[in-house]
Design a protein around this nucleic acid. Structure first.
Lengths: 335, 335
DNA sequence: CTGTTAGCGCGTTCAG
DNA sequence: CTGAACGCGCTAACAG
């Protein structure tokens, strides 16, 4: 376990040349004679020279690290987004540092703090279901660290955002259910601090109008996305006098939790009540009885687009830039 | 977006003291007068001073980053291991850098290379299903970077390893099936480069003997863990003259893929053929018809133990240390 | 074509 | 009790 730091200094002394000659030779600076360059390279290869990134960081003020915050890595949606991010930033020589907020704002703040200490070059974040203040992200910008929100983007907060064309998805979902002769369609939505919830609601309401259906406050509920709360809200649906024939859920997990709650009450999902959800996660493909349809959100694409936007911000040398908003297509997939 | 680097130099000039006074004051060095210390802290707070990690890296040769390689983040098993790792290293001020090999050795090598460039302080890895040479990991050790393998640990390769007590799990699985009056039990195992496959096989064979059952080469097959290969091998099982009544699979995913292949052939899983698997992933809890039982491997614990072992290696100043092996309990969970 | 020097931010001698 | 000076590894401006 001997840390044998190979530095350009060692290479220089090995060859009896100066440090800067080595430095330049390794950058293939044409000012250095070809023979010298070749000799330097030869020694560097032989000694397995790897430049010390810390020295570079110190000069450029760039760490080539990107902080990523997701609620749960365990949710396929987020791990797929991370895959998309990884693909893009790896190519550019950046490294991802991942933190899970576990839908807890305090953890999210701690992650931000640690990114600050780490001096990451940028941050990608899908906010926790709890997050209702955004001061911690403002803090990052104060230090010149750009932030891009994806999927779970905050409401009423100016920022770079990458999100799905949820409204279209919701419209498609309603069209599908309406063609299935369902008229009483409910919405089991996410928490109201998320723009994503707003848009599901707007799409839902637009769809109701467009396909000439009726709705009522009893048809619309929100969950904090936890298993427990989702089951609770589903049971509220079932306890009502006016039970929807179909329910559109915030995402596949909410659908699965709700469907399980149905079974517990002797209600058969997708027969007594039809479910359509968002996300179209691969695991649902391994299920016997997944939601009838789900709005594909192309998470890998969300990840890669977010990463590209962030890298643009990082490389942008202008002092002030407009916040960007990127919208990713959606597509209703019928199972 | 003005990068306003606050350094101890700025604090020093603000207060009209020297740089080293600030440096010492911030470390609460008692050699500095209490009043001075307080003033320094006050200014540091006000200016939101955060020490530049690069400067520290440069001196200590420590980046406080840990490289993690997993096959797929999307598999709940691995994302849970990552959670366990995160919990431990975060407390110690380390940051995780995650790479996915996607069961491809080339990608794994690239990840190692990038960790080398990054000068991570240690590496945690679950090898790809393809990996059959370990030179790239040796490389890390050459640079004094300790490596800990978890779950998918290599065979015939001396290293730090954290793995499950698979044999016990396999024995329990056989006991369970044997109590279910199954006598013809098959094994759909993982690739032979993994110790984990060996152990499943050994446990299986031990169980067969212990519970006085019979087996045959026709009862044992291996998959490279992909959906396609798994389906193929399952269909081979079904095409045989001697079809097992029950099958123990390498993990839950293999079970789910195999069960789907069964359905395609009109064979009803868990009725015509019973399935027992390893991992006991949470998603199976959302399934209608999961494997009948699964060996819980406590992935979060695997993660935290691996991280602890790695941190020990990192903090160990001795030049030569023995490789450690940690075994994590298992428990058959009946669904 | 190559060497010398300063400096990135910080901790740590060594002086005072 | 405090300051000046050096060095970590490297690049870049400045000399020759």
């Amino acid at each position: 376990m001997i840390k044998n730091q190979i530095t350009i200094k060692k290479i220089a002394s090995e060859l009896g040349v100066s440090i800067s000659t080595v430095s330049r030779a390794l950058k293939n600076n044409t000012r250095i004679g070809l023979k010298t360059r070749e000799k330097v390279w030869e020694v560097a290869k032989r000694l397995n020279y790897i430049p010390n990134p810390a020295a570079l960081f110190l000069q450029n003020n760039k760490t080539y690290t990107i902080g990523i915050i997701v609620p749960f890595l365990q949710e396929e949606f987020f791990s797929q987004v991370v895959t998309g991010i990884e693909d893009v930033i790896f190519e550019e020589g950046f490294h991802p540092i991942i933190s899970q907020s576990r839908d807890n704002m305090e953890r999210e703040k701690k992650a931000v703090e640690s990114f600050l200490k780490m001096r990451v070059d940028g941050v990608l974040v899908s906010v926790s279901a709890e997050t209702n203040t955004y001061q911690h992200f403002k803090e990052l910008e104060k230090y010149g660290i750009p932030v891009v929100f994806f999927d779970r983007v905050p409401r009423n907060f100016q920022a770079n955002k990458v999100k799905s064309r949820i409204i279209d998805g919701a419209l498609e979902a309603i069209r599908f259910l309406s063609e299935n002769k369902k008229t009483r369609i409910g919405l089991l939505n996410g928490p109201s601090n998320l723009e994503a919830s707003d848009e599901r609601l707007n799409g839902y309401l637009e769809g109701i109008k467009k396909y000439d259906l009726k709705t009522s406050p009893q048809y619309i509920k929100t969950t904090n996305l936890s298993k427990e709360d989702t089951a609770l809200k589903m049971k509220e649906f079932l306890a009502q006098d006016d039970i929807p024939e179909a329910i559109i859920t915030f995402n596949d997990y909410v659908a699965l939790y709700a469907m399980r709650a149905c079974k517990e009450q002797g209600v058969i999902p997708n027969k007594d009540i039809q479910f359509v959800s968002f996300a179209n996660l691969p695991i649902t493909g391994l299920m016997e009885n997944p939601p009838l349809a789900s709005v594909e959100q192309f998470p890998v694409l969300i990840g890669s687009q977010s990463a590209k936007l962030l890298l643009n911000c990082i490389n942008d040398t202008r002092e002030y830039t407009e916040y960007q908003e990127v919208i990713i297509k959606t597509e209703l997939i019928i199972h």
